[in-house]
Nucleic acid binder design. Structure first.
Lengths: 236, 236
DNA sequence: TAATAAAGTTAGGCTAATCTAACATAAAAA
DNA sequence: TTTTTATGTTAGATTAGCCTAACTTTATTA
């Protein structure tokens, strides 16, 4: 049985491997995500290594073992199912679900998760557009383009967000954006990559940083053409 | 903010005051309920006293302060709402709900509990027949008779159980008992108080210990007569 | 390639929650 | 009322998860 804290470490490792599109994670990076000091991570790594949940060598990179990954995916599954539950059944907003799901994801009961999954009719995506792992632990990893990758003049469809913080999500709502919205990129500032976009006929300016946190599928991919930049979706 | 452990101490104190029908709790008693050593309880009492959640003096009895009681009732409310949820919405059985509710009761989210309460249509009793405190913290405390108080030849109706352990509850089911069942006491052994009861036409023998854990309303109370022993229900 | 910066490690400490063993007090029984 | 038993307390230790400060190794850059 894993502790609440151990589960969070594994989940953070999994999240980083998804975000970085690499299996290798550094101590500082993990410390940042967990909002603890690198020294603390170092201590915990010894324990996780002992339990054969991660592999790492002194001054080397951290990787999840098969078992570590399995556990991490289980936590992720629970997190995303609870988010979906809160959003769909309890009228929680987009930006409220994360905080409570952070607590609920640690509840230990296989039956509870099975029933939750069934109750929600086996959802495939959570309210942020992220894929929910199935009971077998299979997860569709979509390496998606972000809004900042879309060429000027082109359109795209928003499919998910990268940043799940409530401050970011509230901003997204303010700009009039939501999942499945059509976004047209009208112009891009040379100097600071400031974008002017149009959503439902309304024009807004958004920063580079903002655009990097909006996952999209671009028009080319929608109509079946080859993408010039990052491919929109890769199944894994 | 209270820790998971502090919440459990307060909840246990509340439970004991209900069970004993007295506000005064001893260190050993509390240690037994929490399955920790008396020394541990002693340490924690210092902290709870510091936080003004309990009152106690060296070698004296422990009592909850108004604030301690308020917190304890909030945890109890969450516990019983979650039990009801699991039982009614997720097809958990009587004996399965407690363990998972022990975890869920610590989730911190006022909105979640409000929505849960609404979703269940503001239930008044949990699956074990225990009253659910309302949002204001009001709780109907029913000092009930147990099956062992019922006179031979009389009938009664089961309203709740005292022991919520899954082993006890499974045994209750095995005997054919459930909430609102009519029970007739056919005979009582002088020597060991072994009872022969009849439920839905089926006769069973049950021990003294078993009978003490079944709360009932007796026939006299049902038809409005005065009870010879403990009064069946007292509102508080 | 040598100096500097970034990343990672170690040692020693802290707090919360637990324990055991020894001791103190209060209650019950003889 | 004295002894015994039950109950409660204290001291000292342990574990998990965290910290700071000092140090080491690896990576970057001048």
């Amino acid at each position: 049985m894993l502790s609440y804290t151990e589960e969070n470490y594994l989940k953070a490792l999994l999240k980083i491997t998804f975000d970085n599109r690499s299996e290798e994670v550094g101590t500082n990076e993990l410390a940042n995500v967990l909002v603890v000091k690198p020294a603390t991570v170092n201590d915990m790594l010894k324990k996780l290594k002992e339990k054969e949940l991660v592999e790492y060598k002194k001054y080397g990179k951290i990787t999840l073992t098969a078992n570590g990954r399995k556990n991490a995916i289980e936590v992720l599954r629970k997190h995303r199912l609870w988010e979906t539950f809160l959003y769909e059944k309890f009228e929680f907003t987009w930006d409220e679900v994360h905080e409570v799901a952070e607590q609920l994801e640690h509840i230990q009961s296989g039956k509870l998760i099975d029933k939750l999954d069934k109750f929600l009719d086996y959802p495939q995506f959570d309210p942020h557009g992220d894929p929910i792992p199935n009971k077998k632990g299979e997860i569709k990893v979509n390496f998606k383009k972000t809004l900042s990758d879309v060429e000027v003049g082109n359109s795209c469809r928003m499919v998910a967000v990268k940043d799940n913080s409530s401050s970011f999500l509230q901003y997204v709502v303010k700009v009039g954006l939501g999942i499945n919205n059509e976004i047209k990129v009208l112009s891009k500032q040379e100097y600071d990559a400031l974008l002017v976009i149009e959503v439902n006929g309304v024009k807004s300016s958004v920063s580079q940083k903002f655009a990097e946190n909006i996952f999209v599928v671009c028009q080319n991919c929608i109509i079946g053409k080859t993408c010039s930049k990052t491919k929109c979706e890769i199944e894994k």
